[in-house]
């Protein structure tokens, strides 16, 4: 086992642990903070794949913008540990069994697959660099890229419209 495999294993274990803490911590703000940690660790996994552009975008968009939005709403609603809704124990048991069975089924399906030998080793590749992805994004995928701006406009208008306080919306 060489150094990079040890790093990968530690990183994977940390990612899973902090992902579990998102679900298991009872305080909502702590869940958000653990989710930010999980996103940083997933970014580290992207760097391990030499997908540098995705690593940066993941930190800027997810750990930066989206999670700040979540934290903001959470603090706006003023939720504390006391009024945190609790699931029943039976529900928790059933959910744990369901998620565990999902892991087992998927891993059992993976065991039967045979992976095609790929031409490049991980880390030796360069398609994850900003230059190559930018070339691809502005040539082959330029139409979806421009259309995503329309999606953002629609989302922004929708969010503003929903958040506006209107008398007839509140019954």
């Amino acid at each position: 086992m060489n150094l990079i495999e040890i790093i990968a294993l530690v990183l994977g274990a940390l990612t899973i642990a902090s992902g579990l803490m998102v679900v298991l911590s009872t305080h909502p703000v702590r869940s958000v903070l653990y989710l930010i940690l999980t996103f940083f660790l997933i970014s580290a996994n992207y760097i391990l794949l030499n997908a540098q552009f995705l690593a940066i975008v993941n930190i800027v968009v997810y750990a930066g913008a989206v999670m700040v939005l979540f934290l903001f709403v959470l603090m706006l609603l003023n939720l504390s540990k006391d009024n945190e809704p609790k699931a029943s124990n039976l529900m928790k048991l059933a959910a744990s069994v369901a998620a565990g069975v999902l892991v087992l089924v998927l891993l059992a399906a993976f065991r039967e697959t045979t992976l095609v030998e790929m031409k490049t080793a991980v880390g030796a590749n360069s398609e994850g660099l900003v230059e190559n992805l930018g070339n691809l994004l502005f040539t082959k995928y330029v139409l979806p890229f421009e259309l995503s701006s329309v999606l953002f406009i629609a989302a922004m208008v929708g969010a503003v419209l929903l958040s506006k306080k209107e008398k007839h919306l509140i019954d």
Binding site: I4, E5, I16, V23, L48, N50, L106, A121
Partner: peptide, 25 residues
């Protein structure tokens, strides 16, 4: 160092477990 490579199975198992944690949540 990175050339030694990590197997694809590592990422498959990691993302399966992360997805299931999401389902659990």
């Amino acid at each position: 160092m990175l050339n030694s490579g990590i197997s694809l199975e590592y990422y498959m198992i990691l993302s399966t477990i992360l997805f299931s944690i999401g389902v659990l949540g």
